[in-house]
């Protein structure tokens, strides 16, 4: 078993203010984080909002550059965002959105068409009826499937899933999570799965990292972590899960 992504002692600080404004503040969004994603498996990252999870997602996807440390991804990577209303260009048709990763790589037309249809059926959408519609004609769950299709079309090895179900209805969350699990098995994808929802992370992940103010306070196998949380912060998080 080998690693698709290695994150070594990564730091990312943001500064605000300065120039004519008040004195500079430094926000240590990510402050020395290390972990790795194994092929075909899911690394879950859990933590409350502001703990630096989304910054890690952007660092691994290559949208941000680390100030310190190293992010290594072996093979292709892509990212699925939380809000499928913001992640699809409202002025492009579904087909244009889905094929863009291939289009900009100069893949020939015939192959683009074939792969676009194949990838749409993988996310269980009907290519014929979807291709020439615009994102606003779809529900949140369908939009998230379109976003997943766009990420899959270039056959990535690693998918960064940044709260992919947090903005969806609970009934649809399960559909998307199951779809993601099926896709992982079928395509032996690695996932970096980020969420603030402990139960969703437990369902999805093989290994879980718990984040607090820019640091990973505990990493353990999913089962072990949920049974015997070691770090006091992890224990606190678990106690906060509402039970019925």
């Amino acid at each position: 078993m080998f690693n698709t992504a290695e994150i070594r002692d990564v730091k990312k600080y943001f500064t605000s203010g300065g120039f004519f404004g008040p004195a500079r503040d430094v926000v240590k969004a990510v402050d020395g984080v290390s972990f790795y994603c194994q092929k075909g498996r899911t690394f879950g990252l859990v933590g409350e909002s502001g703990s630096g999870k989304s910054t890690i997602a952007k660092l691994v996807a290559g949208i941000l550059r680390p100030d310190h440390g190293k992010v290594t991804v072996h093979g292709e990577k892509d990212i699925v965002f939380q809000d499928p209303y913001s992640s699809l260009n409202p002025r492009m048709t579904v087909r244009q959105i889905v094929v863009e990763p291939l289009f900009v790589r100069g893949v020939d037309k015939q192959e683009i068409s074939e792969r676009a249809e194949a990838v749409l059926s993988k996310v269980r959408l009907d290519a014929g009826s979807c291709f020439f519609k615009y994102p606003h004609q779809f529900s949140g769950g369908e939009r998230q499937r379109i976003a997943i299709a766009r990420s899959l079309i270039k056959e990535p090895d690693l998918l960064v899933l940044d709260e992919p179900v947090s903005s969806l209805d609970v009934s649809i969350q399960a559909d998307i999570l199951n779809l993601l699990k099926d896709l992982q098995e079928e395509l032996s994808l690695s996932y970096l799965f980020i969420s603030h929802d402990l139960r969703v992370v437990e369902f999805m992940s093989d290994t879980v990292g718990v984040m607090k103010s820019g640091r990973v306070v505990e990493v353990a196998d999913s089962e072990a972590l949920y049974r015997y949380p070691k770090d006091p912060y992890t224990k606190k998080l678990f106690e906060a899960i509402p039970s019925f």
């Binding site: 892509d78 990212i79 965002f81 260009n89 863009e100 990763p101 900009v104």
Partner: peptide, 26 residues
Amino acid sequence: ERDFVFSARVQGVSHSRIIFRHILPN
């Protein structure tokens, strides 16, 4: 700063295409 522009950057879309195809029409 919208996610679809971040996504385009991850896809390796060129600056000019991001400007003219993704940002300008919106």
